[in-house]
């Protein structure tokens, strides 16, 4: 029995670089993840931080196997899921879910909220679906009559709650949250973050929280992975990372956060 939910070893992933594709022959590969090693313990909240192009979102999509790595391995709860086919993955899929950055594009505009939340449950053959949709809406603090609304009728914060409801409805063990508050106003941002924190505690979830914002990550996460150019430059517990950052890039990131305080020496 291992209490490591995820074990990632020497993970490599590349994309075809269509911008530099020669007239004849295959496109060159663009290395996005260059040998990552880390674990995610059961019940923890891990933050993944980095600039654009650091590979943090690609890593996230590899963890929930929206992308297939080139080499290395991802073990989920002791099982190697690195190269499983979609059919082999399907029974396991229910155990790791994802919440997306842009709630507008991640909710099918032609479905009502009820259908959006119920869809995944139907796929996995769950029973009492209607009751479960109500439960999920209760959990994220949305009124039950929202089931008959379309995504475009909701505010940004409400849409993101629907995204969360859809993810938790399957009762997963792991949730990946990819920049889920970066499109929201600070007031709804705080609500969504608090909600996520409560859910993790109440439902005993393991969470990986991808963000470019260290302030947000500090609020939520017990451990932080810092990425730059497809590599992990630092992986430390949150207090240590802020008090004694080891990597130059981590120091740069921390120094770049503008505190809401005019007396902070910043420039």
């Amino acid at each position: 029995m291992s209490n490591l939910l995820y074990q990632v070893r020497d993970l490599h992933l590349s994309f075809a670089d269509m911008a530099h594709k020669p007239l004849i022959g295959a496109a060159p590969r663009l290395q996005v993840l260059k040998g990552l090693n880390f674990d995610i313990p059961q019940g923890s909240i891990v933050g993944i931080v980095g600039g654009s192009g650091s590979g943090k979102s690609t890593l996230g999509r590899a963890l929930v196997r929206l992308l297939e790595p080139d080499s290395g391995s991802i073990h989920f709860d002791g099982r190697d899921i690195t190269h499983l086919s979609e059919d082999e993955l399907r029974p396991t899929r229910r155990r790791f879910q994802m919440i997306f950055q842009d709630p507008m594009s991640s909710l099918n505009p032609r479905r009502r909220v009820g259908g959006i939340i119920a869809g995944p449950m139907r796929l996995h053959g769950l029973d009492r679906i209607s009751a479960r949709v109500d439960d999920a809406l209760d959990h994220v603090g949305l009124p039950r009559d929202f089931r008959s609304r379309y995504p475009h009728e909701l505010s940004g914060g409400q849409r993101q709650r629907v995204g969360i409801a859809r993810a938790i409805a399957l009762e997963p063990e792991f949730i990946l949250a990819d920049e889920i508050v970066s499109g929201l106003d600070v007031s709804s941002q705080a609500q969504v973050l608090n909600l996520l924190e409560d859910l993790v505690r109440d439902l005993g979830l393991t969470l990986a929280f991808i963000s470019h914002d260290l302030s947000v990550i500090r609020r939520l996460c017990s451990r932080i992975i810092v990425m730059q150019h497809g590599r992990i430059v630092e992986n430390a517990a949150t207090p240590e990372l802020f008090e004694a950052p080891l990597a130059e890039y981590t120091r740069e990131l921390i120094a770049a956060i503008p505190l809401p305080d005019p007396d902070q020496v910043w420039f």
Partner: peptide
């Protein structure tokens, strides 16, 4: 992303 989200949900 709603397509990715359906894939995460396990739709073929």
């Amino acid at each position: 992303d709603y397509v990715a989200s359906a894939q995460v949900a396990g739709r073929g």
